[in-house]
Computed example of a mutant assay.
Amino acid sequence: MSRITPPPEWAPHKAVWIGFPSHPDLWLEDLDPAREEVVAFARAVHADGKGERVLLVAADEEAARAAKALAGDAAQVVVEPFGDIWLRDTAAIVTGDGHARDFRFNGWGGKYDLPGDDDIGLRLAERRHIRTETCDWILEGGAIDGDGTGLVVTTEQCLLNPNRNPGLSRTEIEARLAEDLGYSEVIWLGDGLMHDHTDGHVDNLARFVAPGKLAIPEPDDNDPNWLVYQNAARDAGRHDVEIVRIPSPGRVLRDEEIIPASYMNFYIGNAAVVVPQYGAANDAAAVEAIQALFPDRHVVGLHADAILTGGGSFHCISQQIPA
């Protein structure tokens, strides 16, 4: 592993930033349910002190009071203005040298331009006295997933999208991933999930669970993403990696529309792995399959329906600080 390569998510964490829903005009009737789901996630990661320190990030004092009332001793509340809670994409990426890389952010290709999202990563890192280097190209944390050896997986739909870095070729992006994050080999998958407003973030599609071991969903009956999953397994299979298949939630509808529900948006903490649940038939099977991959941690499934109304799940709202 290069000194600048981010440690894999299963490596020890010093702490984790978790975004706390703060803006009623964005969340509407889902604000309170989303707050409850976020705090349940924070408690599971904290694991009664056996996990890592949880830093709940609230955008204002009202949200901070709500966060403290719900979380109690399970989290420290930090107040920093932001647009929304998706800190996987907006917080800085802390690397193996103990420093951080903060990338430009353009609201997922110009879809959601919210005040504070463009510099929340730098401000959070400064609060932790983490030396931070600013990288002059657009990259969201949910668009990549590494195994700690220099291997990283991503999707063409996101990283090659002209709404991110239109002047950069595939070769140039690979060079920047190597220079800024120490990644020596890139596994390029094709498209991400249907109706994913991030343009195919890989943390909904494929996740490393050990060095050289990549988890990809197994299509369920009537699965709207069946071809996406099969193509991902085919593309990853061209590399020297072991592929394990995880049950998919299948077709999940909200207001009669297919939503990008995925068990792959799990978070790997020091003591627990937290898997989003959707009231789907494979909820329990997914937790069981992921538990088999992490025998040294407690794998827990928690509902993420309200969080998903904002477009993501547990992995999307968190960014770990490696030990």
Rank of each mutant, 00 (worst) to 15 (best):
I130M: 01
A125T: 02
L177N: 09
T149M: 06
A143R: 12
R128K: 04
R127L: 10
G141C: 11
R164W: 06
I120H: 06
R123F: 01
R131K: 09
R128L: 14
G150D: 09
L181S: 06
A125C: 05
R128N: 01
G142P: 11
L124F: 04
E126W: 00
L160N: 11
G148Y: 02
L159A: 09
G121Y: 03
E133T: 08
T149R: 07
N163F: 02
E174M: 05
V152N: 13
L139A: 12
R131Y: 01
S169C: 07
L160V: 09
R123W: 02
G148F: 03
R131N: 01
E156Q: 15
T132V: 01
R131L: 02
R170S: 14
D145G: 08
L124M: 03
G167L: 10
G142A: 10
R164D: 07
N161I: 03
P166I: 11
E140R: 07
H129G: 02
R164I: 09
L122E: 12
R128M: 08
I120S: 04
G141K: 05
E156H: 08
W137L: 08
G150S: 14
I138W: 00
T154P: 11
T154V: 15
W137Q: 10
T149V: 06
T149N: 14
E140V: 13
G141V: 04
G121Q: 09
T134M: 02
